[in-house]
Design a protein around this nucleic acid. Sequence first.
DNA 1: AATGAAAGGATTAAGCC
DNA 2: GGCTTAATCCTTTCATT
Lengths: 196, 196
Amino acid sequence: MGELDETDRRILELLAADARRPYSDIADEVGLSAPAVSDRVTALEESGVVERFTVDLDRSQLREGAHVLVTLSVPPGNVDDVRAAVEGADAVEHVFVTADGDVLCTARLAAADVRAWVTDTVGTDAITDFDVTLLAASAWRPSVGGAEFAMACDECGNTVTSEGETARVGGDRYHFCCSSCEAAFRERYERHDAEA
Amino acid sequence: MGELDETDRRILELLAADARRPYSDIADEVGLSAPAVSDRVTALEESGVVERFTVDLDRSQLREGAHVLVTLSVPPGNVDDVRAAVEGADAVEHVFVTADGDVLCTARLAAADVRAWVTDTVGTDAITDFDVTLLAASAWRPSVGGAEFAMACDECGNTVTSEGETARVGGDRYHFCCSSCEAAFRERYERHDAEA
DNA sequence: AATGAAAGGATTAAGCC
DNA sequence: GGCTTAATCCTTTCATT
């Protein structure tokens, strides 16, 4: 998929607000026909921009356990293993891996049981330390991001034009308006990495 | 809505995997007719268990900025204000409020700009400190939770029967199999609160 | 990307247990 | 109350331009 145009963004925004909204409805909003919207959504799915259509649940009504944030300190070599273990665990909702290799996750657990859960899930050998925080609230906003963020340089925030570049840093795509921003970003990333 | 039965859970799980899946398809899976599924989904929406149908996007393909985790240290009185400010901010994806009153959020920002973003969004007066971590990866699993978590006591993990109780602790609903578990949980919560 | 026809899904209403 | 079936209406898909 080359570039997302303004219409793609509006379609994504409408789907983020209501993923079951008929394409014919969306077509009216964006000034296209229903088949045209359907084609664009298919393309967005195939390119991986759309990962899945899903449902946002109020999990506090599901009696699934207390909501906790678990911070795992992980030695550099174990990050991928720990991440995989956590992502495969049943009670886990979110997983974040920081640039310096810590793994954070949120999960629904019995609060008295977290130590056992960590031991069972990742094992104590794979991590150097862990910390658990009880969460009182959480929210998730499926926004697409305003146009002002559409092409912002990941270093300086200026608009990325066709002169800009996209580069991989630590396995993830980032976008820069110029090569000096890329260099500055990369240096910061590597410094973080070295400290870890 | 009284109780979610096993069928409701399976419907939610199927919708979490594909929110655009036809109700007639789902009906086949769970052994009901399409109107019956539609009625259940409507009830789930009305009771607030289903907050919205939405789309999970690969935001790294949207050129929306670097993914950062911002941890805000917030004085007790300001938690609600800071939370509201962060939840209203355009670049924010997730917001977590810990039981001891810190506010964490993930956002897509230009990495060089985070200080300015925090100042603009929450103001420096409302917080005592903040910390920014670059995120290398993140994942979100819209799972409904297995039956084993369906009625787990939030303190001990045992099954909550009809003898159990639901109580509010710090504004959130929790479920307990007995009153001593509730007391233990509440005491832990209040100790955390006092330390903050 | 639009159109129109055909196929498929959602919703309604009536009736059952 | 919650379910089913059948009819209607709406949405999606496909072939064509």
